[in-house]
Amino acid sequence: MTEPDFRTATRAAYDAMADRYAASIPERYRAEPLNHAMVPLFAELVLAQGGGAVADVGCGPGHVTAHLHALGVDAFGIDLSPGMVALAREAHPRLRFEVGVMESLNVADQALAGVVANFAILHTPPEGLPAVVAEFGRVLAPGGHLLLGFPAWDGAGPAQAYDHVVTTAYRHAPDRVAGLLLEHGLAEVARLTVAPGEDPRRGFPQAFLLARRTAP
């Protein structure tokens, strides 16, 4: 199957700037507590369900994977960019990282206790989002949890393209994303919207949706 152009472009863009991205993102993550406020809640819910493997999809340099691991979660990272995966392995040698595509994860059906996609869907155009959500639903066990973080769009239509520092990105409408989740057996549990910050790269709201996989 021919790879979509947006995926090829995204991989190439992150490979090209992997070192610079990996140097800046972990510190920004620590400096913006509201943008990872739901990670401890997600971890607590996973552990309360008995634990199990959790995939950090679009893991980048592995900062969220490491955060989850520190919270007691059996987390591993998956990223489209081989360059980012190499840097994640270097920074966190005790954790597992692999190259993968989020629309087609190398994971068995219902094998995961949780999935985190922290600003991983922002380069996915709106027409490609249903396939991503369907894949998350496929790999999650009943009762498993999904945490999505993405730039939010509250205008007319499902999404708005914008000029991201790496490559073309999209602000997705939270209600539309929540509707897609429900269509694939993922019921919304909680939602957090973070107001725009002063950073021009974050000049719009950020949305975080927490969902639970219902029985198939």
Rank of each mutant, 00 (worst) to 15 (best):
residue 215 A to T: 14
residue 12 A to M: 11
residue 140 L to I: 04
residue 71 L to D: 11
residue 31 A to F: 08
residue 135 E to C: 01
residue 150 F to T: 02
residue 107 V to S: 12
residue 57 V to F: 03
residue 165 V to D: 13
residue 68 L to F: 05
residue 179 G to F: 02
residue 12 A to H: 10
residue 38 M to A: 12
residue 88 A to Q: 10
residue 187 A to F: 08
residue 144 G to K: 06
residue 19 D to L: 09
residue 142 P to W: 05
residue 73 V to T: 09
residue 26 P to R: 11
residue 196 P to Q: 02
residue 32 E to N: 15
residue 98 E to G: 14
residue 59 C to W: 11
residue 207 A to S: 14
residue 44 E to R: 15
residue 168 T to L: 15
residue 68 L to N: 04
residue 97 F to R: 09
residue 197 G to M: 00
residue 79 D to G: 10
residue 63 H to S: 15
residue 4 P to Q: 06
residue 48 A to L: 12
residue 139 V to E: 01
residue 8 T to V: 14
residue 124 T to E: 09
residue 170 Y to V: 03
residue 119 F to R: 05
residue 192 L to P: 03
residue 64 V to H: 07
residue 211 A to V: 00
residue 14 Y to V: 06
residue 23 A to R: 12
residue 28 R to V: 08
residue 28 R to W: 12
residue 197 G to D: 01
residue 107 V to A: 14
residue 63 H to K: 06
residue 190 A to L: 13
residue 216 P to Y: 00
residue 74 D to Q: 15
residue 35 N to Q: 15
residue 190 A to K: 13
residue 205 P to A: 06
residue 40 P to G: 06
residue 8 T to I: 14
residue 166 V to L: 12
residue 206 Q to Y: 13
residue 199 D to H: 05
residue 34 L to H: 13
residue 57 V to K: 02
residue 162 Y to K: 01
residue 94 R to D: 14
residue 214 T to E: 13
residue 207 A to T: 03
residue 187 A to S: 15
residue 56 D to G: 05
residue 194 V to M: 05
residue 154 D to T: 10
residue 210 L to G: 04
residue 191 R to D: 05
residue 54 V to A: 06
residue 214 T to C: 09
residue 155 G to F: 00
residue 42 F to I: 09
residue 185 G to W: 04
residue 75 A to S: 09
residue 62 G to E: 08
residue 166 V to C: 07
residue 205 P to L: 05
residue 89 R to M: 11
residue 64 V to T: 12
residue 97 F to V: 06
residue 13 A to F: 11
residue 106 N to T: 13
residue 91 A to P: 03
residue 124 T to C: 15
residue 52 G to A: 09
residue 67 H to C: 05
residue 115 V to T: 03
residue 80 L to G: 08
residue 111 A to H: 05
residue 55 A to Y: 07
residue 132 V to P: 05
residue 33 P to S: 10
